[in-house]
């Protein structure tokens, strides 16, 4: 029946649908690549740190989780894989793999970084959102973006060759009579703080600006100055969003690598002294991967254990930040 055939062809799939499929598939694979990368990273981390299916052993098959989290020393050089140098009493390999010294280094740098980045970033955000004219904002925002785009290795040398010798050392020496080394937590923290400032500023500015204008008007109508409106109404109303920004910045500071490797130093020790030289978790991973240990050595595998710890920390913080932000959005949207 020619008529029915013609009708059917009206509804037949055409080549355009084929194109659609190609587009759909390529976009989907772009999305999948990012997911697969994450999965791949997790598999590699777990495979080397927790459980290795082949004949090689994973890090935590040789070092107990308990030791990893409670030992206050990290001295991988003294431990060798296998049993030849094992402690005869326990049968365990000698040496120390306690994450605490590295963790303290990382946390101190991130805390100093937050102490620098949070007030400056929040101040900049408040200025941009509440005080700046549209023209000023047009100038300041790109400047912040430039700051965010500087390679982190540049920040590292900025800390090492400028902050430490030209600011920190003279100030501490002349004001407090304290001499400090070339590598120290404070310099590393300061540059990390400067690095996260643009991020805090732009994330916080977004949440400040999403506080409804009606709330500001109500505050002005009650006889508030601009400062009152900013500090008593807008910032408190945006607090959870700002907190989310801080968390993301903190997580970024924890993961920061180049600047802290250059400015922070190499000494692995458990300390709370912000003027000491420390090695952070990330810096350790860099050093160890450039070292001459073979890939099957426990030292080399410790990179994955530290990496897994780092990954878990930033993951938890990022999830927390998402959760806080969602609560903020619920109030105003």
């Amino acid at each position: 029946m020619p008529l029915s055939r013609k009708t059917a062809s009206l509804f037949q799939r055409r080549s355009a649908n084929g194109h659609e499929k190609v587009i759909w598939a390529s976009l989907l694979s772009c999305a999948l690549i990012s997911i697969l990368t994450t999965v791949g990273i997790i598999v590699v981390l777990l495979g080397n740190a927790v459980y290795s299916p082949g004949k090689s052993t994973a890090f935590f098959e040789e070092v107990s989780v308990w030791e990893f989290f409670t030992d206050t020393h990290w001295k991988p050089a003294e431990r060798h894989s296998g049993t030849e140098l094992s402690d005869s009493a326990t049968g365990k390999p000698a040496g120390h793999f306690g994450i605490l010294p590295l963790l303290s280094g990382t946390m101190m740098v991130a805390l100093v970084g937050s102490m620098v980045g949070v007030p400056i970033g929040l101040g900049a955000a408040i200025y941009l959102s509440e005080y700046a004219s549209p023209k000023e904002r047009d100038v300041l925002k790109p400047v912040l973006e430039i700051l965010a785009g500087i390679p982190t290795v540049v920040y590292g040398f900025f800390g090492l060759h400028f902050i430490t010798p030209w600011i920190l050392q003279p100030v501490l020496k002349h004001v407090f009579g304290i001499e400090i080394g070339v590598f120290n937590v404070t310099s590393a923290g300061i540059v990390v703080g400067i690095m996260v400032t643009p991020m805090i500023a732009s994330l916080s500015e977004d949440v400040l600006r999403s506080v409804p204008r009606s709330l500001r008007e109500a505050a002005y109508a009650l006889g508030s100055t601009r400062f009152d409106v900013s500090m008593r109404v807008v910032v408190p109303a945006a607090l959870s969003g700002i907190l989310a920004a801080f968390l993301l910045a903190f997580s970024r500071a924890i993961g920061e690598t180049m600047a802290v490797t250059i400015a922070g130093g190499h000494k692995i020790m458990l300390t709370a002294n912000p003027l000491a030289e420390v090695q952070t978790m990330t810096a350790y991973m860099v050093h160890q991967s450039f070292g001459d240990n073979s890939a099957s050595s426990i030292q080399y595998k410790s990179i994955y254990a530290v990496g897994l710890a780092l990954f878990s920390m930033t993951l938890v913080i990022n999830i927390a930040s998402q959760w806080v932000l969602r609560r903020f959005r619920e109030v105003y949207q």
């Binding site: 409804p212 009606s214 008007e217 109500a218 109508a221 009650l222 009152d228 008593r232 408190p236 109303a237």
Partner: peptide, 27 residues
Amino acid sequence: KHVGMVFQKSTPFPKSIFENVAYGPRV
């Protein structure tokens, strides 16, 4: 402060009832 204003859309601050009323005096 002398000429107060009430808006069409109620605009409570995301604070407690007490703090909303105490806002003006606090400022």
